[in-house]
Design a protein around this nucleic acid. Sequence first.
DNA 1: GTCAATTTAGACACTATTGTCTAAATCGTC
DNA 2: GACGATTTAGACAATAGTGTCTAAATTGAC
Lengths: 250, 250
Amino acid sequence: MKNTDKPAVTLQCAPVAPYLPDTRGQAFTRPGSGQCMKRHSILDAAARTFCRDGFTGTSIDLIAAEAGVSRQTIYNHYRDKEMLFGAVVDAVMERTNAALFAILATFPEKSDNLEADLALFATRLGKNCMCNSDGEFLRKLIQAEGERYPELFQIWRENGPAKVGSAIAARLARLAHGGALDIDDPDLAARQFLALVTADMNFCGMQGEKPTEKQIETSALNGVRTFLRAFAIRKASSARADMALSRSSA
Amino acid sequence: MKNTDKPAVTLQCAPVAPYLPDTRGQAFTRPGSGQCMKRHSILDAAARTFCRDGFTGTSIDLIAAEAGVSRQTIYNHYRDKEMLFGAVVDAVMERTNAALFAILATFPEKSDNLEADLALFATRLGKNCMCNSDGEFLRKLIQAEGERYPELFQIWRENGPAKVGSAIAARLARLAHGGALDIDDPDLAARQFLALVTADMNFCGMQGEKPTEKQIETSALNGVRTFLRAFAIRKASSARADMALSRSSA
DNA sequence: GTCAATTTAGACACTATTGTCTAAATCGTC
DNA sequence: GACGATTTAGACAATAGTGTCTAAATTGAC
């Protein structure tokens, strides 16, 4: 059984030409050279450090040390700290977006075994999008620096959660049209779906920390169950039996 | 009609004695004197500034300017930046806790008109606890500095959301026992209740910003409706009619 | 091995911030 | 108005960070 497959999106190197700054002020890189490694490890270390210590709390020297390069190398690739930060944000958003659409493609089409299928979908979403390092980065940094650098995250605000929401809404509407769900407002239902499957993560004393894989799975299943209690259409034949059953353990 | 009453908790001045540092390193203050005002405006400005710019991004000079006092006055009251930060966190947590319990007391007891009552309760919670300035402070700062200063927020992690959760769980269990709700796991239901009534706030492109009052109300009502769809026990007599009705608009 | 590109370590000027210290000004109470 | 407590503005040393510059070392392709 292949489990929640991680859409491994690795960073591509920008093409050719030495020291020509692109839109973000970073120099292009000959692919395959050591430069690519360096740049990757810089972006990686910067993401980790910015996420841990915030923008102002992070020093270039710290990033350099953590990336295993000299400070000057960072300045060779990125004009200044803000440009580096922008590049990190871009990279993380691109990765997360790619993961997002890969996962959206796995949304269940058939309505048999809906609980298990939706739970698997929600688990994938949690593990590879909302609760991994990239998700943590976006969550923390948007909270912390979103107001100071509105233009940086505007793209994400518009394309990130909103797009997941409407994408899930469309797929929920499809299930509703197929007779499996009873949904008035698909957009609202999508938001509530996302809220429910992450419910356990936000209110159990572990604010702002990454949940474990187990916690993600449990939260997803719990959320899907309640979501289906609210929106699933029970078969008319066994409606009374279902209701009696579901009420029995109260 | 008195609307969502705000439990106005104002900061009390610590008693007596000049320049004796208390546990947080802050000097006590003669109540009623100008000192109290100063200290209050320092804490106030510090909360705003820390929330806006983060701990490292905030300078004492900025706080002093925003509070309308000299920098030295701040150092007279608080030993250093960390102590000031700790005092702010304490004050915000105390205020939020007080608001929390005031609001918890308004949780509906009777099960007639449950939707409206729960929506009002959730609205109060949003407006006076989770989405006001104090809520924003705790949310942002725990995300940003929670890992760096674990001991500061540990109290909140244990006493804040967890306590709301179990308090609401107890009240939901009571409603369930009274026959209004069908709930297996009250703690889970409480977390999902909180997640649902704040669902609209997190996934509509406005991450990390304070929602408007209108948004809070709408989100609360939407969330409560779905919560009740999942957990309310429909009267047996009108069950079929209810189900037909709720499905009619899909 | 050569050569150009790249990286490195270190020095550097500059700015910002912290926390201390002082002497003068202000406040509040009697 | 006197007096003690408090606040204030400013100077101050110490530290940390940014971004630039250099010369030497390293890399990688041919």
